[in-house]
């Protein structure tokens, strides 16, 4: 852990300027991942700019949807009655993540920016392209149970660990960002990148850009939504696979759907192909299975010294079918 400076500026603009001018500066919010990385040597910033009291901490009504301040803690977001009623998938995803203590610390802006829990990424004694570009990917051919089956590259097979982000990807959320050049808004599904040949970049954010809020659009069907997380321990574990889904069902037919998948890719995986396959389909297991298979047509299993992760493909199919079945039943 190298020595570091700490600053708590007066406002967000000053914080952005402070980070932008130093290549080795980083924003500090809840700290749950960054402080971990300081100790592991994965992150080696020379300056931390504390933004916890600079970004909004309110959840406000906005155009039939909600705007969530980047400083809203995960626990408060999950407990918000509007979120629980109108976007249960988001409340459930938040509650499925981490522990009560961590949810009291982690923020709306920070959670999506947490980095992969790939064990090789977190261990500075093993090569990792994400940590040290060009050093190689140790996960390929290693322990791959927690690794990707969609969108991976020869350079990186890591998965994104956030549960909350999977729900946000399904809900068509938008990310409001303040940067050195001003504001911009990014569709949440475009925030995270696939690894390609630059796995060191998790997101499209530029250095110095700060998430200030995440907006949820009005989405009536989200009132019937759910997050299903499958993991190796009953609680306090990262997803093997997860499904965030909202469906609009009437008369035994799926009219519309929003689906995102977790634990399977470098980013929360919006399942457009599955959604397309579901629109107009009957509310049967066969339809759900066909939708899952459409989405997973290009899935690639990773062999591994632990038996690999081929099981994730059928597991994800089974989980998506079960989630949609439960939602449709709830609807009826």
């Amino acid at each position: 852990m190298r020595p570091l400076d700490y600053r708590a500026p007066a406002d967000a603009a000053e914080a952005v300027a402070a980070v932008a001018e130093r290549p080795d500066a980083a924003f500090l919010a809840g700290g749950t991942n960054l402080v971990d990385h300081l100790k592991l040597g994965v992150a080696r910033p020379g300056l931390l700019v504390d933004v916890t009291s600079l970004v909004p901490v309110e959840i406000t009504e906005q155009g039939g949807g909600l705007s969530i301040g980047a400083g809203v803690r995960n626990a408060d977001l999950a407990a918000d009655p509007r979120v629980r009623r109108r976007y249960p998938v988001l409340a459930q995803a938040l509650l499925a993540g981490a522990s009560g203590q961590l949810r009291n610390m982690a923020t709306t802006g920070g959670n999506p920016l947490q980095r992969t829990r790939c064990a090789y990424f977190q261990d500075v004694s093993t090569p990792c392209n994400k940590r040290e570009p060009g050093s190689g990917c140790s996960a390929i051919g290693g322990v791959t149970r927690q690794h990707a089956i969609l969108g991976a590259s020869d350079a990186c097979i890591a998965t994104h660990p956030s549960d909350m982000a999977v729900a946000l990807a399904a809900l068509d959320a938008r990310v409001r960002v303040l940067g050195p050049g001003g504001d911009r808004t990014i569709p949440f599904v475009d925030l995270h990148r696939l690894p390609g040949d630059a796995p060191e970049r998790d997101t499209v954010l530029e250095h110095g850009e700060l998430i200030t809020a995440i907006d949820l659009p009005a989405l009536p069907m989200a009132a019937r939504s759910a997050y299903r997380k499958v993991r190796d321990r009953a609680s306090y574990a990262f997803a093997l696979v997860s499904v965030a889904a909202a469906v609009d069902v009437a008369g035994g037919v799926v009219r519309d759907a929003r689906i995102a998948l977790g634990g399977v890719a470098h980013k929360p995986w919006r399942a457009h192909r599955a959604e397309d396959a579901l629109r107009g389909a009957t509310t049967t297991d066969d339809s759900y299975r066909a939708a899952a298979e459409a989405e997973l047509a290009d899935a690639v299993a990773q062999p591994g010294v632990d038996g690999g992760n081929a099981f994730k493909i059928p597991l994800l199919t089974r989980t998506l079918v079960a989630t949609l079945r439960d939602l449709a039943t709830e609807e009826a």
Binding site: R117, A119, Y120, D123, S125, T126, S138, G141, G142, V143, Q146, D232, R233, A234, S235, Y236, A237, F238, V305, D306
Partner: peptide, 25 residues
């Protein structure tokens, strides 16, 4: 404890990845 024979160490060497039962189990 999952050993990676290429490196020779336990890869899941922390309590996030070496799962011991939690209260919910």
């Amino acid at each position: 404890s999952l050993v990676d024979p290429r490196f020779g160490h336990v890869v899941n060497h922390d309590l996030a990845e070496y799962h011991i039962a939690s209260c919910a189990d």
